[in-house]
């Protein structure tokens, strides 16, 4: 891995499914409260459990977690959680578009779609992180981030409670870093604006 320029990044996008909830909670709880970048969270969740998830994430989070409305401007200090039953994508101009397009990899929200659209807009100034999960959604998106010059990180499959998701990244490209949860937190806390 080349030396990382901790000042060039604009956005962090995190994807996960089964087994990722405790990891996300830990990351959000241990990030510096003045963490300088907006965070996009694309987590698979039960389709019709609409309420409660944001609240659960917020309990221990140092960053304010919200479910954005369509066309919300992206700002630092916030983590934007993809609402259930919508895809979360990024538009040029730094705002969120929600859509009800077809399921991708049996998922809506789809991590592939969020990662791909974010990397299209932020190119090499995007950090993508794939956590524990039971399907392969996110693998293509992660590799897209890498090929567009962004920083690609997966949770170490050794640590992930369900390995399928990080391993499916490894099966199609070589992410820049394979880290345990603590490593991810340490890296993120080095980011400056």
């Amino acid at each position: 891995m080349q030396n990382i320029d901790f000042t060039k990044y604009r956005v962090v996008v995190i994807g996960g499914s089964a087994g990722s909830f405790p990891v996300i909670t830990k990351i959000l709880g241990m990030l510096n409260s003045d963490f300088p970048l907006p965070i996009l969270l694309c987590l698979h969740r039960l389709k019709h459990i609409r309420n409660g998830f944001v609240e659960a994430l917020n309990i221990k989070s140092n960053i304010h977690v919200i479910e954005p409305e369509d066309k919300t401007m992206i700002k630092s200090g916030f983590a934007y959680l993809a609402p259930s039953n919508y895809h979360l994508t990024i538009e040029i101009g730094n705002y969120i578009s929600l859509t009800t397009e077809e399921l991708i990899n049996f998922s809506r929200p789809s991590i592939d779609l969020s990662f791909d659209s974010a990397s299209y807009v932020y190119k090499d100034r995007l950090i993508g992180i794939i956590l524990s999960g039971a399907n392969k959604d996110g693998a293509k998106g992660m590799c897209r981030i890498k090929s567009r010059g962004g920083l690609s990180i997966i949770q170490d499959p050794v640590e992930a409670s369900v390995k399928t998701m990080p391993e499916s990244v490894l099966s199609i490209c070589k992410p820049d870093m394979v880290l345990k949860t603590d490593g991810i937190i340490e890296l993120l806390n080095k980011i400056k604006k």
Partner: peptide, 9 residues
């Protein structure tokens, strides 16, 4: 129309 979803379509 919102351009990124239009492009995907």
């Amino acid at each position: 129309y919102a351009i990124s979803s239009f492009k995907r379509r």
